[in-house]
């Protein structure tokens, strides 16, 4: 009898910790821990002559308070599940930005921009090839007009090898 009760409690606690509020609270507590770890390296000073660590330490206190409040809330509503939604579109859009960052210096702006357009466009299902090509060309033309011609941005559009 007591065992099942304990098991129920444990399950409820786990459920609460992985609910929306529970994970939110844990995130805040983790952030507070990160801030406090950093504060360790800074001098706190006194109220009249604050060091660089004083204000962050106070903020960490607030984060802990809000984190605890959310954990209490999660105990009351353990049923609110976290829903991530489809992750593929999200990672394609984010991945397109990584591709830009990795290729810009070596392959030039034109290819980097095309990569962003293609990868992020694939986040939406059922693309037609013709549409993708057309979209890429139009966006590239717009980028060139706005940023290179209009704003005189110093971005090498072509790969390095082709210029020299």
């Amino acid at each position: 009898m007591r065992d099942t009760q304990q098991g129920g409690r444990l399950r409820r606690a786990l459920q609460a910790l992985t609910s929306v509020s529970g994970l939110g609270g844990l995130t805040l507590l983790l952030s507070a821990a990160a801030v406090l770890a950093q504060v360790q390296t800074l001098s706190i000073g006194s109220a009249a002559a604050m060091g660089p660590g004083y204000f962050p330490a106070a903020l960490a206190g607030l984060l802990i308070f809000f984190g605890v409040v959310l954990l209490v809330e999660s105990w009351r509503h353990p049923d609110q599940r976290v829903s991530l939604g489809p992750l593929l579109p999200v990672s394609l859009v984010l991945g397109s930005i990584v591709a830009f960052a990795l290729t810009l210096k070596f392959l030039g702006g034109a290819i980097a921009v095309l990569l962003v357009v293609l990868l992020s466009a694939l986040a939406e299902p059922r693309r037609k090839l013709k549409e993708l090509v057309l979209l890429g060309v139009i966006v590239l033309a717009l980028v060139w007009l706005i940023f290179v011609v209009g704003l005189d941005l110093q971005i090498a559009m072509l790969p390095k090898g082709l210029l020299s």
Binding site: I97, K105, V113, V116, S120, V139, V143, L153
Partner: peptide
């Protein structure tokens, strides 16, 4: 939206020509 993503990425990069800023954006 793909055009908007491009605008966001280039806009961030162009402020100080910094790839690091693109990672900040990410």
């Amino acid at each position: 939206y793909p055009a908007i993503v491009v605008l966001i990425v280039i806009g961030t990069y162009s402020i100080r020509y910094s790839i690091f800023d693109v990672y900040q954006l990410l």
